[in-house]
Amino acid sequence: MHSCVELGAEVLQAYRSALEREESPIGREVLQTLLDNAAIAKEQQIACCQDTGTAIVYLQIGQEISWLGPPLVHSINEGVRQGYRDGYLRMSIHNPLTGENTGDNTPAVVHYDIVEGDKVTVHVLPKGGGSENMSRLGMLVPAVGVAGIRDFVVESVILAGGKACPPLIVGVGIGATADSVSWLAKRALLRPLGEHHPDATIAALEKSWLQSVNETGIGPLGMGGRTTALALHIETQGCHITGMPVAVNLQCHAHRHGIAVL
């Protein structure tokens, strides 16, 4: 619930830096409006964006831990239910075929990893529909190389235009398989804003592709300008020699992300 109200200090700092650099008068107007909005949301303790999203929950569970009682997923959904109700957040989840709203924003989309140790790290990413709808999966061929992947990423940002609510955080997954690469792209959004990949080669691509994305001219809310993305994060995994799976997951300017270590 807290993560739907207050944006992180690093997100606000990224808005301010963008405002200093932005050349477009309309772009500056938009960035200043976003800063004003964040201040009002914090002061009144209300959602900064009405699309409080799909609750995406990612747990890194230490392998020394086990627990009794109902299955973990029940507790996660109960947390979502309470948080969305008590926080006056929007219930945006419905049955895709009948259109019937579930009424409590469940089910959450849940991912788990088993890791070393005796702690549980919980990431919560309330993900808006406008940006999620602009996600893309490309089962490219190895021959396209690094330049081909970059072109696919930039093309995805251009196709999204103002619909994904830029300035964006661009999550890119490369490798694995169709299912896993989509999660890699989403997981890339969980990295602290602007922190580069530990691998120097990948970090260099992140810097270079961010520049390419910002040369599209799309700008804040797609109204033109130099600030189309605040950050671009890449995650990779080995893949089959026949393929080049690439996924792009766009995060809107209202980059809401909570983390807790239990």
């Binding site: 938009v30 409006t33 976003l34 909005n37 959602a47 900064c48 964006c49 103002g162 809310l221 109204m223």
Partner: peptide, 13 residues
């Protein structure tokens, strides 16, 4: 007309 996507607290004011 273009509103400000994502600026929901401000728009509510």
């Amino acid at each position: 007309l273009l509103g400000f996507g994502g600026a929901a607290a401000l728009t509510a004011s």
